[in-house]
Design a protein around this nucleic acid. Structure first.
Length: 400
DNA sequence: AATCCACAGGAAGTGCTGGGCG
DNA sequence: CGCCCAGCACTTCCTGTGGATT
């Protein structure tokens, strides 16, 4: 044996694509929040009350995912903290994600834990936690601002809001304000009337970004996250266009560009263009689809498996004019064979047809109606996804 | 032209399940 | 607590379409 290199030698620790990949991750909090000046200004004008010693009104923020709700809120309360520190004001801000803290008790104990990190309050009763909260505010004469992200995930929200608003009545010196954040626009209507009126004293809407705004946001990120000149303008434009068309979700746009960058890195390219973005988009869609397939009922999985097998076998072998078009009869036969192999009772052809229709509405398969020239009214079926990936995913599923 | 074939899709019936109600 | 009924997943049966075969 000659001189052996290290097996990690191939892994270039110096990326040719990324300058700082972390900036493209969802956890990154940007310093600039373009196109949200108005919303930030509104938040400041509400929260500025506490710098004058008053209790800020509660705030309800809503908008679709990826419209900057969380980033703006975090940014504003960080700034407020900084300002309070500089001017020695008695203001405390707390951010809690309610997906994690999804009940009144969990939220309150998390808040108290953050206020009193040295005090161990885990395992104590709700009233004990609540009293600690009051005691803290009273003792420190604190204006407390609690930002609750994904507030719709809290199971007993009415009680939580009630507890926090009632606290204000009991407190002589301190005060508590709530910032509620939600991406469900219908959520507000489900609330108790009293909860609604106290939580929604002031509302701020975060509209989705349009394509130009998304492109600007991406350019800003790319400047810091990627090496200079690596990301082509076409990639930015394309990623922005996709995200704008789908929901105006900035996080999705950033993720897409991150995936495109990782793809370019894997393929040892030195540029990221719209081609990589397109590939990244396909990759993401396929992952979602395969994920979805795994949650489908067993029978439908068998149908998809039958289609993937037949398509796989037929690749290259031309039949009629279409490359890998299938008609429902042969799929049903294959499906019955596979079902027998796995000892699963097959469904009747009638129900099989319903499955085909359902899978089509999910976008997993594509069907065209062969009006003329072939077996009367019939459906030509093909898989809308990467056949091999689907096949291996399902083989894994059924082998266990 | 009559019949067959391969298929789509409607209608009605069946057996199971889970939730509301007396 | 048992009962009943609605809803579901599915089957059986049936009608209709349009090319292929006799």
């Amino acid at each position: 044996m000659g001189v052996m290199g290290n097996i990690f030698d191939k892994c270039d620790f110096e990326s040719k694509i990324f300058e700082n990949r972390g900036i493209m991750l969802p956890s990154y909090l940007p310093e600039k929040l373009p196109f949200r000046e108005k919303q930030i200004e509104d938040m400041v004008s509400v929260l500025s009350a506490c710098t004058k010693g008053d209790r800020p009104t509660n705030l309800f923020i809503y908008g679709k995912p990826g419209t900057g709700k969380t980033s703006c809120t975090k940014y504003v309360i960080n700034q407020l903290d900084e300002f309070a520190k500089k001017n020695s004001l008695r203001i405390r801000t707390i951010y809690a994600n309610c997906r994690q803290y999804n009940s009144k008790y969990k939220v309150l104990s998390n808040v108290v834990q953050k206020l009193l990190p040295e005090r161990d309050i885990i395992g104590y009763s709700g009233t004990f936690v609540y009293e600690n909260l009051l005691a803290y505010c009273e003792k420190n004469q604190a204006k407390l601002i609690v930002a609750m992200d994904e507030i719709d995930k809290v199971k007993d929200l009415d009680e939580l809001i009630y507890a926090l608003t009632r606290a204000n009545e009991e407190l002589k010196k301190g005060a508590i304000s709530i910032i509620g954040i939600s991406n469900q626009l219908t959520f507000k209507e489900r609330l108790d009337a009293r909860t609604k009126s106290s939580l929604c004293e002031k509302e701020i809407v975060f509209p989705p970004y349009n394509a130009e705004e998304l492109a600007e946001i991406l350019r800003e990120r790319v400047k810091m996250a990627f090496k200079k000149g690596v990301v082509d303008e076409s990639a930015i434009k394309y990623a922005a266009a996709i995200a704008a068309q789908e929901s105006g979700d900035a996080r999705a746009a950033v993720m897409l560009l991150l995936r495109a960058g990782e793809l370019a890195e894997k393929e040892l390219l030195n540029k990221v263009t719209d081609v990589e973005v397109r590939k990244a988009k396909r990759e993401v869609e396929e992952e979602i689809a395969i994920d979805m397939i795994s949650t489908l009922p067993e029978q439908q999985q068998l149908v998809i498996y039958a289609i993937s097998r037949l398509t796989f076998e037929k690749r290259g072998i031309k039949r009629f004019d279409d490359e890998h078009a299938l008609c429902s009869g042969e799929i049903y036969d294959e499906y019955k064979k596979i079902a027998a192999r796995f000892n699963i009772a097959p469904v009747s052809i009638r129900w099989f047809q319903e499955y085909i229709g359902e899978l089509e509405t999910y976008g997993i398969i594509l069907t065209t109606n062969s009006g003329k020239g072939f077996k009367g009214q019939s459906r030509i079926i093909r898989l809308g996804l990467d056949v091999e990936k689907v096949k291996t995913a399902l083989e894994k599923r059924f082998s266990s």
